[in-house]
Design a binder for these strands. Structure first.
Lengths: 333, 333
DNA sequence: GATTTAACTGAAAACGTTTTCAATTTGCTG
DNA sequence: CAGCAAATTGAAAACGTTTTCAGTTAAATC
């Protein structure tokens, strides 16, 4: 009546060998006589035996599961990374436990602890503001961690990103070269190092190279949402900005639609460049010019890196930078 | 040197009680004297003991983990469901193992088996074409399964959806009432029951009520992608369609942009209505009218239903239909 | 064919919990 | 304060694997 499970012991008995031998064939251990292997395999087939991964995890101290902490899967940027992660995880026989943190420090700590209690073999973290408390928790564990599409300004953790500073600098330079004297920098929370340090730095460098003084009235700190973007047009106009470097695609789409709705022509009256190159950039009209990032690859490479860490393989570079590009579409001249 | 872990045995010794007692206080069992509980709690705090979920899983046969099979997290529709699932999972102390199947029957079977070997307590499945092989695998397990946003034409599995047939019928009726004699039905793969049976049925019913003969030249079976949508304009024009009922938002956005690019005005020359009400509908211009679905809730309710199944609580209705709505935006007159 | 060596196999101890069942305490009752 | 029920506790057996170590068998050498 009850869920009767076939255990390794059952197949051992049926094949007249020991559990150890069954375990060996299941794990592909070479030290088994071919004839024995075949016999065991046949019984496994016949009994439809499936190894219990939990018991395996307890005995071997490996769960072949990795934890993935993401601010919100509903955000295309993170969804793309997550997809890359899952694909290479699958490739290496891992599964992922996916958890949404809403970039909330407390949730991040909780979630991290549950993942660790579940004995994940590794963790991929996304999120750009690392609270002290979180760093402390990270430090307490020996479980390998890699950041994906997320900077670590303390240079401690393995991570894979693009060079946000250079990319922003380059794009802002282009904007300036095209005659824009006042280009706005519209970003997510500045406490997030990726904005407040890396990207803002690129923005400032571009201004400096062009001999334009930095004006903090031109930087707009937002919550990265579409809705907020749609409301920004008046503020942007009031500081006489003629272009904007935006750090999130949905936010950028909001700004662009807000402009259009207010009769401001993009790109003729206002140029917009965005940062994540999600498919949204192509769906919106005009299509948005963007920094291109290999989103899927960032996730994929992060996961690959994590496998190396988990298997104690040597890694040459803990801070991997993937190439970025610049895709001109219709929101810039 | 080695990752020295504190076990339940360590705290038992330190608190001079038995493992059983420690286990009791960890699990909130009531039969522990308050003084003892406090003593144990103090030691747990002091030693920073964290229960090993794997060992727990082996002993109790519960992993507090559920498997989630999704075609592709990168699709906003599924990402929204997944978010709803994760949130209520967290609420009930579960974690989710998220796997992408690409709606590929073989992958689905593989993934299902890994999930089962990992002893997940339940499974949430998304995907609309259930191969015989997959059904067979489903049947073999006693692990509860619920479908989210996915139909089961055999009425076997617990599932939560909206009434796709009624929703489509209603919208097509509106299109017809507004004077469209030839409305196209543009959908994903017809093998998927949600399209080939439920939605198509609604389309046909609407035609029938209006006394319009069904013309299969007006149904366009696609792969649900944006790209495909952008290429559909000529075909749609060649059959003299003046409106389209589309089953996917990205696809619909593609069609709309394809129309606009070809100089066909939406909605004046061509009306479009889509089906999933993802945030994309608002980002695109003109904004797309859509059937509204409580995406997040579908996921949330599915997960809630699964918890009941996992805890052997009675469930009154295995086929839950959530309310849908119709949101008129700018792609219809 | 006797030795030596390499290949294969099995017994049993982990792994860190939960859970059953019996034993011990404690609190009441009269 | 004996007697009994209820509340607490602990011992030990699961749970289903992996892994170590010793033993056994087969192959190779002379």
């Amino acid at each position: 009546m009850d869920k009767q499970t076939i255990t390794i012991y059952d197949v051992a008995r049926e094949a007249s060998v020991s559990m150890a031998t069954v375990s060996r064939v299941v794990n592909g251990n070479a030290n088994v006589k071919p004839a024995t292997r075949k016999k065991v395999l046949d019984v496994i087939e016949k009994l439809d035996y499936r190894p219990n991964a939990v018991a395996r995890g307890l005995a071997s101290k490996k769960t072949t599961t990795v934890g993935v902490i993401v601010p919100d899967v509903t955000n295309m940027y993170f969804a793309s990374l997550a997809r890359g992660i899952d694909d290479v995880a699958t490739m290496y026989k891992y599964n992922i436990i996916l958890t949404n943190s809403d970039s909330n420090g407390e949730k991040e700590v909780n979630v991290l602890n549950t993942l660790l209690s579940k004995q994940v073999d590794g963790i991929i973290f996304m999120g750009n503001e690392i609270t002290d408390k979180l760093r402390e928790e990270f430090k307490r564990t020996k479980t390998p961690i890699v950041f994906a599409g997320s900077v670590d300004e303390q240079n401690i953790y393995a991570r894979v990103n693009i060079d946000y500073t250079a990319a922003v600098q380059e794009e802002v330079k282009n904007l300036i070269d095209r005659g824009n004297k006042r280009v706005a920098f519209v970003c997510g929370p500045l406490e997030q190092a990726i904005n407040g340090q890396f990207r803002l730095k690129g923005y400032k460098q571009a201004l400096k190279s062009a001999g334009i003084p930095y004006d903090d009235k031109l930087v707009f700190e937002t919550d990265d949402t579409y809705k907020t973007g749609t409301l920004l047009q008046p503020a942007l106009m009031s500081v006489n900005a003629t272009a904007a470097m935006v750090t999130d695609d949905e936010l950028a789409a909001g700004i662009m639609n807000g402009m259009s709705d207010a009769g401001v022509k993009v790109p003729d009256d206002f140029e917009i460049i965005t940062s994540n190159d999600t498919k949204l950039t192509e769906m919106v009209r005009p299509k948005m010019s963007s920094i291109t990032q290999p989103l899927y690859d960032i996730g994929a490479v992060a996961m690959r890196l994590l496998t190396k860490l988990m298997h104690n393989e040597p890694v040459d570079e803990k801070d991997v930078l993937l190439p970025y590009g610049l895709m001109k579409r219709e929101s810039t001249k």
